[in-house]
Design a binder for these strands. Sequence first.
DNA 1: AACTATTTTGCAACATTGTTGCATTGTATT
DNA 2: AATACAATGCAACAATGTTGCAAAATAGTT
Lengths: 140, 140
Amino acid sequence: MQQTIIDTLKRNQLSITDSRKKILELFAKANGALAHFDIEHQSGAEFDRVTIYRTLQTFVEKGIIHTIPSADNSIRYALCKEDCAGGHHHDDHVHFMCDSCGTTYCLDHVNVPQLDLPKGFRAVQTDVVVSGVCSKCAGA
Amino acid sequence: MQQTIIDTLKRNQLSITDSRKKILELFAKANGALAHFDIEHQSGAEFDRVTIYRTLQTFVEKGIIHTIPSADNSIRYALCKEDCAGGHHHDDHVHFMCDSCGTTYCLDHVNVPQLDLPKGFRAVQTDVVVSGVCSKCAGA
DNA sequence: AACTATTTTGCAACATTGTTGCATTGTATT
DNA sequence: AATACAATGCAACAATGTTGCAAAATAGTT
Ligand SMILES: [Mn+2]
Ligand SMILES: [Mn+2]
Ligand SMILES: [Zn+2]
Ligand SMILES: [Zn+2]
């Protein structure tokens, strides 16, 4: 696990630092997406807030994590799949936010659909965010 | 126009106040969605920031406007169609944010698609936000 | 292992966005 | 016009995010 994390950093030409290792580890452990808030708490005040912001920015730029839009003003982040790289994200899957437990899922097997846009509109990225009740919360 | 605005407020059992009239008017004039920031500027510091926030909240609750999620930490709002009402929004259309001019469009004629979610996931709302270049900016 | 160039971090300060409590003002109703 | 009620403005606060800069850590070289 530690080795995978270090490999990921090296592959992206990032120097190996405590904060980067820790934050990547949190993403690997997490079963859903993480917001800045989650990371700040789960890392136990180990790093400065600013460092977390900058690390997240770096990871997004490198194609290690991707952002998930929301209507509640806190961006969530989740690990990318293999084929994302610097500046070129390919996370064309749907995201799901559970209203009950708050978890944000990457539905890796639900692809974002092709859309017929009005004449003249050119799509560069399509974000689909579904909210509702997740399978864990429905089963309970 | 003024009459339509007053009618909308009355239909929703809202008292007629200067800020509500002005903000509704801004939405009626706007060709896209508006963020709090836009309203604060376009209304020329006529109202307190808090009043704008509360007015937007009220309008959302009444089904007069709907929110549009984003990954840039500022919620956008746009007028709902006829069939939205208190607590029951029916804005099942796609939204488009132009990377060039910044305008956010309601693509009223592009419906959000039906999705096959994994077993156990129940969708309550689906938001589709496309970003790219709008027809105005492409034409220029 | 020590040296050095370059990156990263922590801190302070600030900006933006949004919320809450409460006294004052405005609106609707009689 | 008087009253009951709702909306507003102000102050204070909270959460989220950004920037500049000095100190510390990292990576590559001797
Ligand atoms: Mn994802
Ligand atoms: Mn819309
Ligand atoms: Zn859940
Ligand atoms: Zn445009």
